[in-house]
Design a protein around this nucleic acid. Structure first.
Lengths: 344, 344
DNA sequence: CTGAAAGCGCTTACAG
DNA sequence: CTGAAAGCGCTTACAG
């Protein structure tokens, strides 16, 4: 690969001039600029990014923190692929690459004193590699660690976790609004006894969906008896168990809003086992709109999240901070009610 | 962040000695080494990776090529998440990070003359960032471009695409063996009229699955009439269409082996629409073992790929080359027959 | 075993 | 507008 020196020699100018042509082209005379540009093109010159990062203390990289291989092996992000597509596309459009940071739980890092999901380790990597900022994806157990990142002062944006810090923000769906839409949809279909299966209490989207559910029920003048609120963990078995307990109630609900599609599928299974027809005897509404939602029997009514849009919004937020545009407010992306056959 | 100079001053040694403590510890006297190590720990010293990469021409990064946002927007990798988990874990274990390279179709890169999926652009990025090597994931249309990478001489390993080059290899499932298992399973269940829905002709796994199918059928002494081989594109609609045409045959098959679970689900739908009972009147076997396979009705018999294992194998292969261990032979990971209710 | 020095390839005040 | 020079933080022959 040619270097800036070779270009300079071939053009009969100094390396400073060559550098300027790429970084502040307007400060170079038209003639010299054109010569340099032509020669650079002919030699297919590309700046060495390591040298660049060393000199400027900036790299064209954004870090991605996504812990994978410990503690919750079964954990599966409901829409990681779409999220990555949105994130990567939006970052690419601005010439940034995405660096998936090695899990801090790795042997190599543990050797230097880092513990699992250790924010310090990630913050160090960020500095060592001159990353512009960090995107944090919760892998089901690191939410608390995220707070520590957020306070590091590095630009960071979390997905589906609310963090707070000088240069920290987050992106999530409008979970409150989505849950409210679910309630209004069910009420509109004539339901009055509506239960909900929530996500974990510690999870922000779970809390918001419950809040939205409660607020909308109150708005409709409907009561929510305590036994109509069952906590799940977002996974299918918990939805199935929750539904089983709801069905066993003296006065079971006629409709249930599940805080995730996985749990809604579990609810569908429980209904089938109990011999309940869906939607005639039980209406079910989920949240996420995962691929499976359209394929189960009956197809699931759900609140679709703008999965790729969340990735795009996260990318925009980091880039805004990287470019000195201040810390953006948290973004709440609208959800969309997709009515299928599991409710009416 | 402290630098090597500060450590050196505090310890009263030269920067060379400090550097050696981290890179060739045995060449430093025990006393000095221990002092340096202690001070480094106290200051939480971490080497600046940009400086390191500049000096050594090596970075602790492996590049990932996965084009996302063009030409085939609907394309979905059947097991990207598991693949990434395997890849990242195995890389992490050796202290390497994974750099998701910006899509070369981005405006920024196009501006410098790179076209879509342009191997040259990726090869350049690899050099500019001193990446150790490249992992290539086919996004449905880039297989041909992969050949160009492979010939660049950079260490690269492709997933599910056969590439050939001085430092290129690939990882895939034992597709031939998997298809053969499917055939033997169906024959064992008493079927003799067995059809197959293949993937695209240009796709290596598709070709291998067809070869395995044919070989096993021959081995069982069974004929494969030409109309029993229908080409699909791995997606559901194509499986559904293919099954429809098979059902319409004067002598329809009693069993079908689909080269992907998505197509098998399509086949299931076609069978349902035609009023055929599965598995009584038609047995269906898929390939992949995606999450959906266990959840459709009836649950799908399929050949499970070792998804994370493929990622791990890819990681091992690049690292072997990075560490000068030569070019590993292509790896064919075993598949596992998972018998569910769609066949018997 | 250790240090002085050159070098990796680029950027950016500082003079002119 | 342009160049000489210092500097980013590290590594590695080369002497000793």
């Amino acid at each position: 690969m040619p270097t800036i020196r070779e270009i300079a020699q071939l053009c009969g100018v100094s390396v400073a001039t060559v550098s300027r042509v790429f970084n502040q082209p307007l400060t170079v005379s038209k003639e010299k600029r054109e010569v340099v540009e032509r020669v650079a093109r002919e030699l297919d010159y590309r700046p060495n990014e390591s040298a660049r990062a060393l000199a400027t203390k900036r790299s064209g990289l954004i870090g991605l923190v996504w812990d994978t291989d410990h503690r919750r092996p079964g954990w599966r992000h409901p829409y990681l692929q779409e999220l990555l597509i949105g994130l990567k596309s939006a970052l690419s459009a601005h010439g940034y690459h995405l660096l998936m940071l090695a899990t801090s739980g790795s042997a190599a890092l543990r050797a230097v004193g880092a513990s699992l999901a250790d924010p310090v380790a990630y913050v160090n990597m960020t500095r060592r590699h001159h990353l512009g900022g960090l995107v944090l994806i919760d892998s089901g157990s690191d939410a608390s660690a995220f707070t520590a990142f957020a306070q590091s002062g590095l630009p960071c944006v979390a997905v589906d976790v609310d963090v707070d810090g000088p240069r920290a923000t987050y992106v999530t769906s409008d979970n409150v609004g989505g849950a409210a839409m679910a309630v209004r949809h069910l009420v509109g279909a004539g339901h009055r006894r509506i239960a909900t299966v929530t996500g974990p209490r510690a999870n922000r989207p779970a809390v918001d969906r419950l809040d939205g559910f409660r607020a909308a029920m109150a708005g409709e003048g409907l009561a929510v008896p305590p036994e109509y609120v069952v906590e799940g963990d977002f996974y299918r078995p918990s939805g199935q168990a929750a539904m089983r307990s709801l069905i066993a109630l003296p006065e079971p609900p006629t409709a249930v809003f599940c805080a995730s599609d996985e749990m809604a599928v579990g609810a569908l299974l429980a209904a089938r086992h109990a011999g309940l027809r869906v939607p005639e005897e039980l209406a079910v509404v989920g949240f996420d709109d995962i691929e499976l939602a359209a394929l189960v029997d009956p197809p699931l009514t759900t609140l679709a999240q703008d999965k790729a849009g969340i990735g795009v919004a996260a990318a925009r937020a980091v880039l805004t901070m990287v470019h000195g545009g201040g810390t953006p407010a948290p973004a709440f992306l609208p959800t969309r009610l997709v009515v299928r056959s599991s409710s009416r």
